[in-house]
Design a protein around this nucleic acid. Structure first.
Length: 420
DNA sequence: TCTGGGGTCCTAGGACCC
DNA sequence: TCTGGGGTCCTAGGACCC
């Protein structure tokens, strides 16, 4: 039997905000999405007030004020840095680790089966807490799906004190029937009600169904989930992160935009952000898509559109990508709408795998490479975005983000070091 | 007034082939 | 009235994840 552990940070973003502001301890804390739009993280105290995940801020403002909830704008450079530290500590405890998201990692514990794993997990938890200040919970199981489910128990049941082991069949038989199917990894908003109508209400119900039947009626993924719930490890630990297939940069505007000019700037900006990631992972873009839309919640009729330009040969050329993106924008922009959001999507090709054509001038690429490297060197020295294409504009006029409650970037910016 | 951003995978259906 | 059979590839859209 393979053994998986899932370590998942508790209320990660809220815990990060607390780290440098101990006064927030035991107080309800929420963290907002970009543009201060939605609530995307809540401390336990905030959850207890009934604030749901993803709730629009404006609908909850009154509750937040009444209970003196601490409201924070998202500070992803802080969370990213703390995540890196947590992962580093977790890495000490197993040679097999898959970083699954910003606040979660699977550990392979096969080599540790001689240990009392409950004790070992408590040791991991304690160490992460002591070395980073972030609380984590740990679930253990014979498959990733069961480890995930064990983690839910570890968080929810006070008696578990942050660690739960779901390897034992008797324990599974006791827990799974009480676990709503919606808690299962891979069962979401749409699937849960559909399953309920067929009498599948608990994780146990799902596990009892014939995988072949589930595959025919639903999908191969759900069949796999049922197998995983039965203790069969179908999903391997993926230690090597797979190369990205696409890179997306998009954001709501700080306010609604009607004119094309500021949208052009925002598009140029997104091309650059996507390009930075592209360079970071040494890939090439084979196609670029630009999309633009109005708010789906507005009273006016919705308009959304997108346009894709295929590149004759894969490229990393920032100026070229920007030019193509502007052309794509012209295809989809219509006068008269109050736009809410735009974005740029790069479809990637694996570098070195493409067939060049007869007419590409290789010396041209060297020139571009020098230009890109210089651009990056300057921005490394003077700060991100110090040097950029003029098409981004000089001010983020109208499209810049709203962030009215941003905490300092304590760990990634010299100017924001905490004072003691 | 105000509703996130960044991903992956799967499926259905159409276009196309012989 | 009646209109093959077997296959591949691509894309859009949907569902899911955090």
């Amino acid at each position: 039997m393979t053994i998986f552990a899932l370590a998942d940070c508790n209320n990660f973003y809220a815990s990060c905000e607390r780290l440098f502001r101990p006064a927030l301890e035991r107080r309800p804390v929420v963290v907002l999405s970009n543009n201060d739009g939605c609530i995307i993280a809540r401390s336990n105290e905030a959850k207890a007030l009934g604030i749901p995940m993803g709730a629009p801020l404006f609908q909850w403002r009154e509750t937040l004020e009444r209970h003196r909830v601490v409201v924070c704008s998202a500070n992803f450079s802080l969370y990213g840095d703390l995540s890196r530290r947590v992962m580093q500590v977790l890495g000490h405890f197993s040679p097999e680790m898959e970083i699954y998201s910003i606040d979660e990692a699977f550990l392979g514990l096969d080599g540790f089966r001689h240990l009392h794993l409950d004790t070992y997990a408590r040791q991991i938890r304690q160490t992460v807490r002591q070395w980073t200040g972030i609380p984590v919970s740990i679930g253990i199981g014979p498959s990733k799906t069961l480890a995930k489910l064990a983690n839910v128990v570890a968080k929810k049941v006070p008696r578990a004190k942050g660690v739960f082991d779901l390897r034992d069949a008797t324990v599974q038989a006791a827990i799974l029937p009480r676990m709503p199917v919606a808690e299962v990894w891979g069962v979401g908003r749409k699937l849960a009600p559909r399953l309920a109508r067929e009498g599948i209400e608990s994780a146990w119900d799902l596990r009892q169904r014939d995988p072949a039947w589930l595959q025919a009626r639903y999908s191969i993924s759900l069949a796999r989930t049922a197998r995983e719930l039965a203790g069969e490890a179908c999903l391997p630990l993926e230690e090597q992160p797979q190369p990205r297939q696409q890179i997306l940069s998009s954001r709501s505007f700080g306010q609604r935009l009607r004119d094309r000019a500021p949208i052009e700037q925002a598009v140029a900006h997104h091309v650059r952000l996507a390009w930075e990631k592209l360079r970071g992972q040494h890939s090439l873009a084979g196609a670029i898509t630009v999309f633009l839309r109005t708010s789906p919640h507005a009273a006016e009729p919705y308009y959304g559109n997108q346009h894709t330009v295929e590149l004759p040969e894969p490229t990393q050329d920032l100026a070229r990508l920007t030019r193509l993106a502007q052309r794509a924008l012209r295809h989809i922009y219509r006068k008269g709408h109050a736009y809410q959001k735009c974005g740029v999507l790069l479809n990637l090709c694996e570098a070195g795998l493409h067939q060049g054509d007869l007419f590409t001038n290789p010396s041209n690429n060297t020139e571009r490479e020098t230009l890109h490297a210089t651009l990056e060197a300057i921005n490394r020295r003077f700060g991100r975005g110090s040097l950029r294409l003029a098409s981004e504009g000089f001010q983020t006029h109208g499209w810049g983000m709203q962030q009215n409650h941003r905490s300092p970037s304590y760990t990634t910016s010299w100017g924001a070091l905490p004072r003691v």
